[in-house]
Computed example of a mutant assay.
Amino acid sequence: MTTTGRHDLITTPVTADLVRGALDLERTERGLLPHRLPARARAQCDDGQLAMAESQPSGIRLALRTRATVVELDALPTRRAYAGVPARPHGVYDLLVDGRLTAQGGVPDGGHLLTVDLATGATSFRPGSPGTVRFEGLPAGPKTVEIWLPHNETTELLALRTDAPVEPAPPHGRPVWLHHGSSISHGSDAASPTAVWPARAASLAGVELINLGLAGSALLDPFTARALRDTPADLISVKIGINLVNLDVMRLRAFTPAVHGFLDTVREGHPTTPLLVVSPVLCPMHETTPGPTALDVTAAGGGQVRFQPMGDPAEVAQGKLTLRVIRAELARIVAARAADDPALHHVDGRDLYGESDADELPLPDGLHPDPATHHRIAERFAPLLRDLLPRPRPRPRPES
């Protein structure tokens, strides 16, 4: 149902049939809050980092069919800041018309502010007000419009306004790729939501993305495995490793059965779906040095965010995890399971970003790639999707 709103635009409530890429939509006093983990999973972990990551709508977008040339979206963002570090840019909204990036915008004012002290982990919260992102000058005529939400800002959706009626975009008919990973998959330091490497790879391969990249939270959690198990998909990929080192959460003895258990759970819902196990991309500081990972206080004092390893390479003998240890064990696990699971595949993360790439495009903070590296990883991953995903069925031609 639509009503006439301000500026003689038509106001349309944001409803579930307009939203893609979310696993859950929470009804709030103002509107809808997209989540990338279901409520049952969220109830099993009260970690603040996970709560922030899964509510940041990486890969989530509004998809509608309309003749509108003006589109406005009222939203209430939760912006993130780091104590002692220059303010981060506001989140970017990407507008696609018939699959092409046409415009970018943002909510210039308002929003909640979450401030994190990286040295201590302490947080503070300042409530704010909603704002509006506006796009105008869209091409005339019927078209599919997508608004990709900022990948790094929790975004409560309040209302949509247009100068022509809207309806949900029709079924896409493309294969669905379900991906889980860490902050790199979530989109840390990517330029915009469609420039996050899984979003870019999905676009290149012509597939539909559900992105469960969870910054700091790819920890082999059973509830994440169950979310993957219960989500329909034509291909699934799980990128495992770096966060286990960052947080120093387990040793090799626990890692191996945890990986098996995670894959077993996914396979309960997808027994024959192509499943890619992706090991970590190159991260020089943790190749042979275990975690935990900590903020470089000296760099932070100069207004820069850089990370450093705090483990001792000698501890690897006692089972501490490094990226090299994880890569070798993931390759062994997949090889052992593949005899009974021909749809299981292994991807060495260094084939996506390796030593020569690090020489050319070093990780700016020691941990996360820059926008150019997101593009490179996407270009290398897209062929894997094309090779393993079923081709979309051609739509019947309309009768003349």
Results as ranks from 00 to 15, higher is better:
residue 274 P to Q: 07
residue 285 M to N: 02
residue 246 N to H: 12
residue 252 L to S: 12
residue 261 G to Q: 05
residue 284 P to A: 01
residue 250 M to E: 09
residue 242 I to D: 03
residue 249 V to P: 04
residue 273 T to F: 08
residue 293 T to F: 02
residue 272 T to M: 04
residue 285 M to E: 09
residue 281 V to E: 00
residue 282 L to F: 13
residue 267 R to G: 02
residue 254 A to Y: 03
residue 268 E to H: 13
residue 261 G to W: 03
residue 255 F to M: 03
residue 262 F to M: 13
residue 240 I to L: 14
residue 282 L to A: 10
residue 295 L to M: 10
residue 239 K to G: 08
residue 244 L to G: 13
residue 256 T to A: 11
residue 274 P to A: 12
residue 247 L to T: 09
residue 259 V to D: 02
residue 292 P to G: 06
residue 283 C to I: 15
residue 259 V to E: 09
residue 254 A to Q: 15
residue 277 V to H: 10
residue 254 A to S: 14
residue 240 I to Y: 05
residue 257 P to L: 03
residue 270 H to P: 03
residue 282 L to Y: 14
residue 251 R to L: 11
residue 280 P to W: 01
residue 240 I to T: 10
residue 258 A to D: 15
residue 247 L to E: 03
residue 247 L to I: 04
residue 252 L to D: 09
residue 278 V to F: 03
residue 239 K to V: 13
residue 292 P to T: 14
residue 241 G to K: 05
residue 266 V to W: 03
residue 285 M to R: 01
residue 284 P to Q: 01
residue 293 T to L: 12
residue 249 V to D: 00
residue 287 E to S: 14
residue 240 I to K: 01
residue 244 L to Q: 14
residue 253 R to I: 12
residue 256 T to L: 15
residue 242 I to K: 01
residue 298 T to G: 14
residue 276 L to I: 15
residue 262 F to Q: 05
residue 257 P to D: 06
residue 239 K to F: 09
residue 250 M to W: 04
residue 286 H to L: 11
residue 239 K to A: 14
residue 245 V to K: 01
residue 276 L to Y: 07
residue 242 I to M: 05
residue 258 A to V: 15
residue 294 A to E: 10
residue 289 T to F: 03
residue 263 L to P: 05
residue 278 V to K: 00
residue 286 H to T: 10
residue 250 M to Y: 00
residue 269 G to V: 07
residue 264 D to V: 09
residue 250 M to D: 12
residue 243 N to A: 03
residue 289 T to Y: 00
residue 276 L to C: 14
residue 283 C to T: 14
residue 238 V to P: 01
residue 252 L to P: 07
residue 265 T to E: 11
residue 261 G to H: 13
residue 275 L to I: 15
residue 255 F to Y: 08
residue 262 F to I: 08
residue 253 R to V: 10
residue 284 P to S: 05
residue 261 G to D: 12
residue 275 L to R: 07
residue 249 V to N: 04
residue 270 H to T: 07
residue 239 K to I: 11
residue 257 P to S: 06
residue 290 P to Q: 04
residue 255 F to T: 03
residue 280 P to A: 05
residue 275 L to E: 11
residue 292 P to R: 10
residue 264 D to Y: 07
residue 279 S to V: 09
residue 247 L to H: 09
residue 266 V to I: 15
residue 289 T to S: 05
residue 258 A to C: 15
residue 258 A to F: 14
residue 265 T to P: 01
residue 247 L to M: 06
residue 251 R to S: 06
residue 284 P to K: 06
residue 264 D to H: 12
residue 298 T to V: 14
residue 259 V to C: 12
residue 293 T to C: 15
residue 271 P to K: 07
residue 296 D to K: 08
residue 285 M to H: 06
residue 240 I to P: 02
residue 250 M to F: 01
residue 243 N to P: 04
residue 294 A to F: 04
residue 264 D to R: 11
residue 264 D to E: 11
residue 240 I to V: 12
residue 295 L to K: 00
residue 291 G to V: 02
residue 259 V to N: 09
residue 257 P to E: 07
residue 273 T to D: 12
residue 298 T to M: 08
residue 287 E to W: 08
residue 248 D to S: 09
residue 261 G to L: 00
residue 264 D to G: 08
residue 289 T to C: 09
residue 241 G to T: 09
residue 275 L to C: 11
residue 264 D to F: 06
residue 246 N to K: 13
